[in-house]
Design a protein around this nucleic acid. Sequence first.
DNA 1: CGCTTGCAACTGGCCTGACCAGTAAGCTCA
DNA 2: TGAGCTTACTGGTCAGGCCAGTTGCAAGCG
Lengths: 256, 256
Amino acid sequence: MSDGAQFRQVSPPVRLYQRIVEQIEEAIARGDLKPGQRLPSERELVAQFGASRPTVREALRVLESNGLVRSRQGDPNGPEILPFSSAGLTKEMTRLVQFDNVSMAELISFRMILDGSASLLAARLRSEEELSAMERTLAVMADAIEAGYEEFSKADVAFHEVVAQASRNSLIEVCNLVVRGAVLSLISDKLAHAPNSTALMRESLHHHREVLEAIRAQDGPAAARISRRDLYDYYAGYVPENEQGPLLALVDDEET
Amino acid sequence: MSDGAQFRQVSPPVRLYQRIVEQIEEAIARGDLKPGQRLPSERELVAQFGASRPTVREALRVLESNGLVRSRQGDPNGPEILPFSSAGLTKEMTRLVQFDNVSMAELISFRMILDGSASLLAARLRSEEELSAMERTLAVMADAIEAGYEEFSKADVAFHEVVAQASRNSLIEVCNLVVRGAVLSLISDKLAHAPNSTALMRESLHHHREVLEAIRAQDGPAAARISRRDLYDYYAGYVPENEQGPLLALVDDEET
DNA sequence: CGCTTGCAACTGGCCTGACCAGTAAGCTCA
DNA sequence: TGAGCTTACTGGTCAGGCCAGTTGCAAGCG
């Protein structure tokens, strides 16, 4: 091989539809296009981009599948710019779980990490309103124990949601949302039909109260520890014995 | 309003291209289509799905943008099924950072959480080979200090990669990858031109060694603590003073 | 005068058919 | 046997068209 000239990797030609996607994505990222605003009609876009309608449509379908815009047949205002949503992230995360055979143990480990960290941060950053919001969700949980698993689960989710918000970290919030959804979609029916579900719910409520008290006391490490332990108690039964190592590591090791 | 009959919400009709996407996605999820295999040609798919070519193409463009398949013009074998990649997740996560204005502080907090947890788990689960792989990357880092920031950063990334793998949790691995990429893409040039970059690199290397020793000693909490502190020292300078609270919470609170 | 109704002018969803450029396998010919 | 060309495909893109759905407005109704 001769030295001297350095060659760059050649890249395949960029498809036309891709450039259209890029332009619109950039416009949204720049803020030129805000949620709720409308894109010109397809035929108008054809004129502006100088491409054919199928090409423009390919671009719109990609944007649509990414959750950036939505087209409705007959709408004279044109495609709508959608507000940001974590739907795409959720889809990708779910894909990861399906194709990359992520195990239940990994999923729950991750949830313990996220939820523990959310509690830790919430303990330091929570406002008074957030504290009372947490209290309200606990009250709803208490009432829901008799209403059945469905209701209880909804209130449970709401509590964790408030905690995640109080952590002031939207990455934690979104990832937690996604992982929680993935876990529930895998075993919610098992939980619903657990023989001793009332006892489980009661215990879970108790744990949640402890977490809340730790957050109120601004004791982050305790809040984190209790959160993780709660999740462990609640879910460990659904993880094979030989995969429980990581879960135990998360419960034990942070204790002092 | 009369009571009696209850009506369900009507859902918008599912677009044709969407159903094609679903079918192909399912086939991949089921394992009927494995990476490396080929899809029939567009014209063949047109026949099989009974849809027109533009419609089939819309579906293929969506799959392509999601990283599931790749089409190459002229390839007589048809579109290729791609192996799973976290590219889609990365894209979504990047979108989250861009559109949902995630701050540098949030990004680094999240990185501290992920990396700390990875170290914690790695301390318990690491194999001997992984330990020596970590050692090798540290050796490369040491050599790279003089070669400049570029090389050093690459070795640095490799170390964290090995640790993440040793945590045996692909969710941590992927999220860490993504967040690391996002952070670096935001400030890698600043790091590269830091006035005292050599000193910084030397200190970072020292911290990494400490992490490795904690992992070797199977002391998870220590490994996690040191990981977080290392990241804090390395990146805190790029976070505004008034946003450092969460970072400090992650560094301090877990110490005992 | 206010409300409903029906219509018309758009919209996007989908299709047909066509042309061009790129690829690779097979064939030809030295 | 091997190098080069040909050919039969591939995907990329376009033009034009039909249908169904949405909306706004104007005409018609009470």
